[in-house]
């Protein structure tokens, strides 16, 4: 009886040790939301290259199907890989993905948005739960990216602009793939919103709420925001 108890304790300790180990060892994909060189903040005024003065209120998007390729050509694919990135939730900017190894990462790929299979599979859980406000009601499908804010250039009610980019049916499948190559393992993914607003004139283009050619165009432009920054060791 006594030895059983002892074994139990050892098992529990061992298990906890294992968990702690895993947490410490996992590779974290860090995202840095920016407006040019500054860290992007909500409700702060920025001026875009198209001369629009703008504030960001909502900025949320999905990152999915994260894959790592190591210098020895082996790969790691995250299972059930769906992450909702939200400027209002700092935790979402850190994605724990894999156990670190000594191998060097040569390439990292992921998609912006949610694939068509998940879009036709009914009510999902976790980051895909429809309570997250990233699922369309009147027309099924995920909103891949939501950017909302204000600009004096928008002659809309309360000067707002709203971009809800999505669509899972061809020819308007709005998911986009990103491929980044870090120089060393000390890197972070940069998401520079200025790159998107560079190519938008908010006076003319300030509301996209449905799948279609306009959403496809904006999805292409959104890929320009993604880059990688490797700190020198």
């Amino acid at each position: 009886m006594k030895s059983n108890f002892f074994i139990g304790i050892i098992l529990i300790l061992f298990f906890q040790l294992g968990l702690a180990q895993e947490k410490k060892d996992s590779l974290v994909l860090r995202l840095n939301l920016k407006f040019r060189t500054e860290t992007l903040e909500r409700n702060k005024e920025y001026v875009s290259e198209s001369k629009d003065t703008l504030e960001i209120e909502t900025f949320r998007f999905y990152i999915s199907t994260i894959k790592l390729q190591y210098s020895d050509k082996t790969t790691f694919s995250e299972s059930n890989s769906y992450h909702l990135i939200d400027i209002e939730n700092p935790n979402s900017l850190r994605i724990p993905i894999a156990k670190t190894t000594d191998k060097t990462i040569s390439k990292i790929t992921f998609s912006i948005g949610v694939d068509s299979l998940a879009s036709v599979s009914g009510a999902m859980s976790g980051d895909l739960d429809p309570t997250k406000g990233m699922y369309w009601a009147w027309q099924s499908g995920f909103i891949n990216m939501k950017i909302e804010g204000k600009s004096s250039s928008c002659k809309t009610r309360k000067n707002t602009f709203q971009f809800h980019i999505g669509g899972y049916m061809k020819p308007n499948y709005a998911i986009r793939n990103i491929e980044l190559k870090p120089i060393n393992s000390n890197f972070e993914v940069i998401v520079d919103v200025a790159e998107l607003f560079k190519s938008i004139k908010l006076a003319e283009n300030n509301s996209i709420m449905i799948p279609g050619s306009k959403a496809m165009e904006l999805a292409d432009k959104a890929t320009k925001m993604f880059g990688i920054y490797s700190k020198e060791n």
């Binding site: 036709v120 009914g122 009510a123 997250k132 699922y135 009147w138």
Partner: peptide, 29 residues
């Protein structure tokens, strides 16, 4: 589902009446 078939799965149909401003005007959250 729906008269225009905009909804592709029974599970997500209820999002329509719940969030429609003319029906229940609520959020799922």
């Amino acid at each position: 589902f729906m008269w225009d078939g905009g909804v592709n799965h029974l599970d997500v149909q209820a999002l329509n009446p719940i969030t429609s401003p003319d029906e229940m005007d609520e959020t799922l959250a």
